[in-house]
Design a protein around this nucleic acid. Sequence first.
DNA 1: GATTGCCAGATTGTCGGACAATTATTGTCC
DNA 2: GGACAATAATTGTCCGACAATCTGGCAATC
Lengths: 214, 214
Amino acid sequence: MPAIDRSSTTDRVARALREMLFSGELSPGEPLREVSLADSFHVARSTVREALQVLTAEGLVTRAPNRGVTVTELSEQDIAEIFEARLVLESAGVRAGAAGADLAPVARALTTYAEAARGDDPVEATHAHLEFHTSVVALLGNSRIVASADVLTADLRLALASVERQRRNARQQVADHRALLTLMRSGDAAAALAELERHLATARLSVTERVRPS
Amino acid sequence: MPAIDRSSTTDRVARALREMLFSGELSPGEPLREVSLADSFHVARSTVREALQVLTAEGLVTRAPNRGVTVTELSEQDIAEIFEARLVLESAGVRAGAAGADLAPVARALTTYAEAARGDDPVEATHAHLEFHTSVVALLGNSRIVASADVLTADLRLALASVERQRRNARQQVADHRALLTLMRSGDAAAALAELERHLATARLSVTERVRPS
DNA sequence: GATTGCCAGATTGTCGGACAATTATTGTCC
DNA sequence: GGACAATAATTGTCCGACAATCTGGCAATC
């Protein structure tokens, strides 16, 4: 018996827009016109407005009073803040992991990521990658912290969307993450934290240079 | 030259509701009926819906599909999660403070709090108290982390609203915070972190027992 | 040439009403 | 007392409307 979809129209519109944002179909700075969206989705304008407000709360789009919403543009500083915030949250997760939290979900996320990295769908690979990081934060068993982390990663996907086609050395990436997992398993918190910090620092550089090629 | 109010009706409705929530005028679990609110605020139902969605995103109210929104009820576990998350974020702030960040804003927040604690408006005292904690998180200079912390404190105010009239030993509270500031000034990160953890632990106990009297 | 004022078009913010779908309540029957 | 039908309350979604605001162009002014 297939599950029955109980989501609201607003939810589905928000989901559709989210996918368009993550896939790069909509570029940062691009305006999202209410009537136009309402027409193409065949829903009422009020429904579109509600969906846009959801995305606004998530930070994916930005609303300027009386001028509508546009796809959020991330400055270099924004990206720096996102990575710093991720370091704070994921460090807490890594500590929990090194301190004995059940690492099975992280291991599963790593396997999924490794498979996706071998595949040819960059959007999916990015998703699996970020899922790994989420699973690390989830080691704390704190849904609020996970929610905060999810917002951060969603914002990041926005920046990645425009450039993620040029994915490189996926194998190295996966190895990095496997190293982090191993260090957590060993219980060496300091080493695991150092590895996390190193990994995030290089990732940040990579994102920054790709987003704003110098 | 007085500032001109450029806020939208939705914003003002959301603000009014927020105040009613923080002041305890609306109790956890209480339903918020759209038509009823629209009538009393003299605005359209769609405007109320938008305001409620803002509050939903902030976690202050909870929407059940087809059953409307109610004031969020926090379980003991929710409170535990909030305090754990605060510890994660504020610890990062304390480290920055001990590492040399400019502590002037924290000192100012402490002064404001000390004055409010002497006053007789418990809502204001709570606000000033939480502002102090926010100022600690702000030491990181990361607006995204501050935003996350703000959501947490807002949720907490919800739990405090119903019981904050019975405020006690405000003097001791202020002294605690002063101690934290002093330790950050001294640069002793470990000691400052310990003090923060101790303070949050006792605060959590105090909140928990007041919310769900055993 | 830069600034200002004004106009037309596009878009948002807010309103009011409408109605089907869903949920809650009441009343009835066994 | 519990199942069940009838009823009421409420939400989700749609539509149409219109004032307020923003944008860009163009003329008038300094």
